Simulated scan of single mutants.
Amino acid sequence: MDNSMRYNDFAGFLAGEFPFKVQKISVNAGFTCPNRDGTKGFGGCTYCNNQTFNPAYCRDDRSVTMQLEEGKRFFARKYPQMKYLAYFQAYTNTYGELELLKRMYEEALAVEGVVGLVIGTRPDCMPDSLLDYLEEVNRRTFLLVEYGIESADDRTLERINRGHSFACTEDAVRRTAARGIRTGGHVILGLPGESREDLIKQAERLSELPLTTLKMHQLQLIRGTRMAHEYALHPEEFHLFSADEYIDLVIDYVEHLRPDLILERFVSQSPRELLIAPDWGLKNHEFTDRVKKRMKERDAWQGKAYRKADGHKNS
């Protein structure tokens, strides 16, 4: 960790991987999810509305190449020398026939200026046959496979209709990392029924996994989701953090994380027209600046309270 930083940030991680600036471009390849199409269930996760993270250029009626080229035009105005990572983000991007998946990924890698892939998926959608192929991809280009973990508590996973257990997450992360592939995770802090103590335990459990990167964000209630309906009926079952409350929770969480984990982000911004709550009026970079300031005030740093699985505190 850089001595001037109190946590390992994603920008520093990318700077160590590439000798030039890189930017992720989101791609919607038209995938669905096993708990939307009836394989495991219908309706998807209770909090999910994919409109919250798809930029305007990212529509599944256009080819992967077209989406990447439009994304490149958007960013190249400001940074002409920028290179790009194709970020397969919407829904479950390993949920399909192997040959179709290969064609999608190879199409992205063939676009000029694309120097790697980030593939967002679920822990229950990573067969060994796909890992065989991704292991080969990883030998020739940058690859990060990012799993939606969301929670380490099976009761929570069931409540949000996730369709898999935490044991499934552990298995997928370990199988992926064992291939030498950079492996990321994504969690939501503040899901109903989870206390601060539960989340600290979650940080400790995730630290035992061979994750390279971790994204976290606050629970957001989004219009048109089943969770928004649940909140309307039973608001007492939800705790929606103020910005300052959430900053202190994030810092507590980060202090219990393994010191070498790369922390990609702390918050997510949903479109104002879709967001019910909480609406803090802060951009991601403004929130991150407040986290850094508060960490300095608290003399906090990543891993400060981390204990290895054998019970020894990190030194």
Rank of each mutant, 00 (worst) to 15 (best):
H239L: 10
Y231A: 12
T213M: 12
L240V: 08
L240T: 09
M216C: 11
L211N: 01
H186A: 09
L191V: 01
E255I: 06
S242A: 10
E194H: 12
G281P: 02
P278C: 06
D279E: 11
G281D: 03
E264K: 04
L282N: 08
G185A: 13
E286V: 15
L282S: 09
E236T: 05
D289A: 15
K283Q: 15
A277D: 00
V250I: 14
Y231E: 11
P271S: 00
L249F: 09
R226E: 14
F287C: 02
E245N: 01
L274V: 00
D198I: 04
P235F: 14
S195I: 08
P235T: 14
E273T: 04
E204V: 07
L214M: 14
L249I: 10
K283E: 11
D244R: 05
M227K: 01
L257Q: 04
T183V: 09
K201T: 14
L261W: 10
D244T: 04
F287W: 05
V291G: 05
F287K: 00
Y246C: 02
T183W: 10
G224S: 07
H285W: 09
D198K: 01
Y253W: 07
R290E: 11
D252V: 14
H285A: 15
L263K: 05
K292E: 15
I262C: 07
L206P: 07
E194D: 13
W280I: 03
H229M: 13
Y231R: 06
I200K: 02
L282M: 14
R196V: 14
L261N: 06
Q220G: 07
L221I: 08
M227H: 00
